[in-house]
C-alpha cells in the first residue's frame, strides 16, 4: 500500500531524511519509532505530498507522490502532530469544513460527523468552540478531522503528544479499531510503549536514517539478552554520576542519561549492579532506586544508537 524508495530530504546542509526505503502492507499498522528530530514528521509530510523530496520516490496504492499528488491526497488522511484546527469554529463546524474539503456532502457528511464525534467521545461538546476544549479533546478532534472521509491510508504523526492518560488510551483504542476495519496506518511516535502496543511492524529512525526494521520479536532478538538498569539518584544528579567510568565497567554495553535517571544496558545486571553502586558512592553520588527492565524496543534503540529515545 505504501512504498518508499531511497527517499531523501535536505534542508540546506541538514539531511532530515536520509535514503529511506521501506514498505507498508495493506491493513498493517506500521510505526516509525525515533526520538525528536529523527525525521519522522518530515517523512510523513513527504508521503502526504506536503513536502517535495530532494531525491527518491514514494507511491501510495501505486500512485506516485510526485506525479499524482491529488490522487494520493484523495486516498490518505493525515493527523498532524500539531492541533491543526480552527479555534473559533465549533468541533462540528471544523469537521463539516474538513469533510467538505474532502468532497463529502449533505446527509452523508452529517451522518459521518455524528458518528465520528461519538467515536472520539466529543458528541456532547460538538457545538462548543474548539478554543474551549481541553488538550485531550483537541487531540481527539484533530484525529477525527483526519479520518472523517474514511481514507484507505491514515498517517498519524505523534497523535498522543502532551495529553492525559485517558485521552491517550482512547486514541490508541480508536486507532486499533480503525485498523480492524481495514485501514492501513502509518504511525509515528517516540513512545516505545505505543509502538509496542499498536504495531505489526516497526521502523526505528535516528538522524533521518532507518536503523532497524521488522516485527517486534525480530527487533527484540537484535537486542539479544540485554537488560536495562535504570538508576535514579538523590539530589537530582548533583554531583554528576561518572558516566564515562560506568561505560568502562565490564558487561556494560552502553550508558545513557534520560532526565534525572541513568540507563545502563548490560548483559549481566546482577554482576554489574554492585560495581555501579560502588563507583557512584566513590564519586559522592547517592542512588535512590534501581530498576531492572527486560529487553524492549527502547533497549533496541539504546543498543543501536547508544542513546535513550528521549535524549
Amino acid at each position: 500500500m505504501i512504498r518508499v524508495h531511497n527517499l531523501t530530504k535536505r534542508f540546506g546542509h541538514l539531511t532530515a531524511v536520509d535514503n529511506l526505503t521501506f514498505e507498508v502492507k495493506e491493513g498493517e499498522i506500521f510505526s516509525l519509532l525515533g526520538p525528536n528530530g529523527a525525521g519522522k514528521t518530515t517523512t510523513i509530510s513527504i508521503l502526504a505530498t506536503l513536502l517535495l523530496p530532494t531525491s527518491g520516490e514514494a507511491w501510495i496504492d501505486g500512485y506516485s507522490i510526485l506525479q499524482r499528488p491529488l490522487e494520493v491526497r484523495r486516498l490518505i488522511g493525515v493527523v498532524p502532530q500539531e492541533i491543526a484546527l480552527y479555534q473559533d469554529l465549533s468541533g462540528y463546524e471544523n469537521l463539516w469544513f474538513w469533510g467538505q474539503m474532502y468532497g463529502l456532502r449533505g446527509a452523508e457528511l452529517r451522518q459521518r460527523i455524528r458518528m465520528t464525534l461519538e467515536q472520539v467521545g466529543l458528541d456532547e461538546k460538538a457545538h462548543h468552540k474548539v478554543r474551549t476544549y481541553s488538550g485531550g479533546m483537541k487531540r481527539r478532534l484533530n484525529l477525527a478531522a483526519g479520518l472523517l472521509h474514511h481514507p484507505r491510508v491514515l498517517f498519524l504523526d505523534e497523535p498522543t503528544v502532551g495529553i492525559d492518560p485517558q485521552s491517550r488510551r482512547a486514541i490508541l483504542d480508536f486507532v486499533k479499531s480503525l485498523n480492524r476495519e481495514g485501514m492501513t496506518i502509518l504511525y509515528t511516535t517516540h513512545y516505545m510503549e505505543e509502538a509496542q502496543e499498536l504495531s505489526h511492524r516497526v521502523g526505528i529512525m535516528d538522524h533521518g536514517r532507518l536503523i532497524a526494521l521488522g516485527t517486534q520479536s525480530a527487533l527484540l532478538q537484535q537486542a539479544g539478552e540485554h537488560d536495562t538498569l535504570v538508576l535514579s539518584f538523590e539530589n537530582d544528579l548533583k554531583p554528576q554520576p561518572p558516566l564515562e567510568v560506568l561505560r568502562h565497567l565490564s558487561e556494560v554495553i552502553n550508558v545513557s542519561r534520560e532526565g534525572d535517571r541513568i540507563k545502563v544496558l548490560t548483559t549481566a545486571p546482577e554482576e554489574v549492579l554492585p560495581h555501579l553502586v560502588t563507583v557512584c558512592l566513590e564519586h559522592g553520588v547517592r542512588i535512590r532506586s534501581v530498576e531492572v527492565i527486560e529487553p524492549n524496543l527502547e533497549t533496541v534503540f539504546l543498543k543501536l544508537t547508544g542513546r535513550a529515545l528521549r535524549d
Binding site: L50, R73, V78, P80, I83, M101, Y102
Partner: peptide, 14 residues
C-alpha cells in the same frame, strides 16, 4: 503558523 494551511494542502485542493 497554526498548521491549518498545511492540513489544507494535504486535502485534494490545489
Amino acid at each position: 503558523r497554526q498548521q491549518t494551511l498545511q492540513r489544507l494542502m494535504m486535502t485534494p485542493t490545489s
